[in-house]
């Protein structure tokens, strides 16, 4: 499962992620291209008990969310 949140301004990346995480999917990839989105999605995912690993990419960051 992948969410492309590139170019979306805060808080839309979080809202898009929220829709998916509320369905209790085991793992999601979120693509973001601004720092606020990276931090907000990470914070939200952690609060939802997901492990977050961040990889830097050419456009921004890839957030790999895995259900704990």
């Amino acid at each position: 499962m992948e969410i492309d949140a590139r170019g979306l301004s805060c808080p839309q990346p979080v809202i898009e992620t929220r829709k998916v995480l509320f369905e209790s999917v085991p793992s999601v990839l979120v693509l973001v291209d601004n720092i606020a989105a990276k931090e907000n999605v990470s914070r939200f995912a952690t609060a939802m008990k997901y492990d977050v690993s961040v990889t830097e990419t050419s456009y921004g960051w890839k957030l790999d969310l895995q259900k704990q």
Binding site: P11, V14, R18, R43, F44, A47
Partner: peptide
């Protein structure tokens, strides 16, 4: 710190986060 007066209240409402 990505300071935002609206964001603080919005995050509480949207996902109960007080950061």
């Amino acid at each position: 710190n990505r300071f935002c007066m609206a964001g603080g209240i919005r995050d509480i409402f949207l996902f109960r986060d007080s950061t």
